[in-house]
Each structure stands twice: as structure tokens, then as C-alpha cells.
């Protein structure tokens, strides 16, 4: 863990070498990503709810997913940009070090400009929470924290799957974006607003529903069962196959080469 934070500090040091670039990128990140939120606000200027969800409820959902995604962009950038590691041949170097490979991949890159998005997501979340009339209690706080945590975990798992794809081919990387970026855009809305097939897919194949739908229902008081509130914990199980797939890919790499 110490190595991880040290590497991050070094990436930050490297990024800060280019000061003007860092500041400008940071600002542009904030500006560009507010447009995403404006789209939602514009949408709700026309309709006052989508399948029973109000604007602030959707914004809450949206900001939680953004939070999880951006946290990964900052802290797991190495997994996100794993294709570069393979293409440049730097992955060989990681295999020469006496440490866990996934940890080293995490250490290999960081992108602190993207922390602008994390901050932004937190701001939007707070605004949304202030406008929603939540009856706060301990369970609701736990549920909210679990949602944030599981959002980070699920995107980490998906990034890891996408990275594993690089072991097989570095061509056609767009395919993986369907699941990372595409998935993110879907998940920004409460999954329930989509048709049943989507709900099933995002419950059992990529369990976004456990991040931002079932717990959201509990959090907003639309469902009372505590299971709904604790459902984000299931996402942790999802991480397991992702790690296994990555290790299978690694085995293949060492027998096939580039």
C-alpha cells in the first residue's frame, strides 16, 4: 500500500512539473463536465419526472456514478490505460519486479487532473441531497456510503475486465469502451427507467443495479426492505471473476508474448 501512495505522489510530482497545463486541464475538466449535468437539468425543464424519479433524484444517481468512475480515473488510471502498458512493452518491466501485478499496474499511472470530476461529482451530490427531503438515519447514511464505495468498485472491476482484453488483442479497443463509457452513461440514470431487459442485464451481467438502483430505492424511501440498502455489498463479489480473468490473461501473455 505504501508503494501505491508513493507512486501516486510521484505521478503528482510529474504532473505538477507542467504547471500551466495542469491548471488549464483542471479548469476545462470542470467546465466540460458541468455540461453533462446541464443536460439533465434541461431534460427536467420539459418533464417533471422520469418514471417517478424527480430531477434531484436523478442528479443524485448521476453524481454517484460519476464519482465512482472518476475516482478510478484518478486512482486506477494504470488499469484504464493498460493498453499503453502492453503496446509500449512496459508490462514486461512489471513482470520483473517482485510484487503483485495488479498493484503494480495501479502504481503505473495516475491522472490528477481528473480529480476535478470527483470534486464536481461531490458538489452535485451535496446539492441534490440538500434538495431532497431525506429522512436521515444511520441505515440511510450507511447505504449512501455503500453506494459510493460500490460505484468505485464496480468501475474498477470493469476497467480490469477491459484491461484483460488487451492481453488478447490491442486492436479494436473501442469494444471495451462499450462497457466502460457506455455502461457509465446508462448507469447515470436509475436503471429502473429502462425496460426490463436492461434491468436484468445490469443486475446480473454488469451489476450496476446494485450500485445505483436497488439501494437508491431504499435511500429515497421508495422501498423499505434493508436488503435493498445493503445490496451494494454484492458488487464486491463481482470483483472476484474480474481478477480471475485478468490473471488468466496474464498467463496467456507469458505464453504468447506480445
Amino acid at each position: 500500500m505504501k508503494i501505491y501512495f508513493k507512486s501516486l505522489a510521484m505521478h503528482l510530482k510529474g504532473e505538477l512539473e507542467y504547471r500551466v497545463n495542469f491548471i488549464l486541464s483542471f479548469l476545462s475538466q470542470i467546465l466540460v463536465f458541468f455540461t453533462y449535468y446541464f443536460i439533465i437539468i434541461a431534460l427536467f425543464a420539459k418533464f417533471d419526472n422520469i418514471k417517478g424519479f424527480t430531477m434531484y433524484e436523478v442528479l443524485l444517481c448521476f453524481s454517484i456514478i460519476q464519482f465512482g468512475f472518476s475516482m478510478n480515473e484518478v486512482f486506477a488510471r494504470g488499469v484504464d490505460r493498460f493498453d499503453r502498458l502492453i503496446i509500449r512493452g512496459d508490462f514486461d518491466r512489471l513482470l520483473l519486479r517482485p510484487r503483485n501485478i495488479i498493484l503494480q499496474v495501479l502504481c503505473s499511472d495516475g491522472d490528477f487532473v481528473k480529480s476535478a470530476r470527483v470534486i464536481q461529482a461531490i458538489i452535485v451530490m451535496i446539492v441534490a441531497l440538500l434538495h431532497l427531503h431525506i429522512e436521515w438515519n444511520i441505515m440511510r447514511v450507511i447505504t449512501l456510503l455503500l453506494m459510493l464505495l460500490s460505484a468505485c468498485i464496480i468501475f474498477f472491476g470493469i476497467f480490469l475486465l477491459a484491461a484483460s482484453y488487451c492481453f488478447y488483442t490491442v486492436q479494436g479497443l473501442e469494444v471495451r469502451n462499450v462497457f466502460t463509457d457506455g455502461g457509465k452513461h446508462m448507469a447515470q440514470y436509475p436503471i429502473g427507467v429502462f425496460s426490463k431487459g436492461f434491468v436484468l442485464f445490469f443486475t446480473f451481467i454488469i451489476p450496476y443495479a446494485f450500485v445505483n438502483y436497488y439501494p437508491l430505492l431504499y435511500f429515497l424511501g421508495k422501498k423499505d426492505t434493508i436488503i435493498y440498502g445493503l445490496s451494494p455489498l454484492l458488487v464486491i463479489i463481482y470483483l472476484l471473476p474480474c481478477i480471475i480473468v485478468f490473471h488468466l490473461g496474464m498467463k496467456r501473455y507469458s505464453s504468447v508474448g506480445s
Binding site: I3, K6, M10, G14, E15, E17, R97
Partner: peptide, 18 residues
Amino acid sequence: LWWDIPAEDTFDLLRDIY
């Protein structure tokens, strides 16, 4: 070596890795 930072920082990190 890390491109944007001095070699000594890389050395320090290697100390922790090994």
C-alpha cells in the same frame, strides 16, 4: 526510469518495491 522526475526518486521507489 520515470520520465518527468529525477532518477533518485525512482531509486527510492525501487527501494520500497524490493
